[in-house]
Design a protein around this nucleic acid. Structure first.
Length: 121
DNA sequence: CTAGTGACGTGCC
DNA sequence: GGGCACGCCACTA
């Protein structure tokens, strides 16, 4: 169960539609890890780039890209990718989260993720 | 073993 | 808006 944490995060993130956003907290909630937003960040950090996973669509609840020296430029890359998807991001990493936040059908999403978890066994 | 550090979030001032 | 405290847990020194 726990060994698939990264995989579950990546799968959930891959469900985010093009041009839309989600927060770390949302993703944590979807996979049944309420309050574990940091772990989501860790899972994405462990993602090797480039990746099929649209990791750039995950931002923090303040509506900003989380800038960090340890990311060695992937934060800057994230900004570029989002702009390429039509989401305006200013030089400080701020973006209009309100207008682009993905609000999925939680029941359908939970079902999708649950089936994925079963398929992994 | 403990302590510090985060791609975080919520609550409070 | 900013700053602080706490909770969360993987990782590192």
């Amino acid at each position: 169960m726990d060994r698939g944490f990264d995989a579950r995060v990546w799968h959930a993130v891959s469900l985010i539609p093009h041009g839309q956003l989600a927060t770390y907290g949302q993703v944590a909630d979807w996979i049944g890890a309420w309050g574990c937003a940091r772990q989501v960040g860790w899972a994405l950090r462990r993602l090797s780039l480039p990746s099929e996973v649209p990791w750039q669509r995950v931002v923090n609840a303040k509506g900003r890209i989380s800038m960090s020296l340890s990311r060695e430029g992937s934060d800057w890359m994230q900004r570029q990718l989002l702009i390429a998807e039509g989401i305006p991001v200013d030089a400080e990493g701020r973006l209009p989260l309100k207008g682009f936040l993905w609000r999925p059908d939680l029941e359908a999403l939970a079902l999708e993720i649950n089936q994925f978890a079963i398929a992994r066994e």
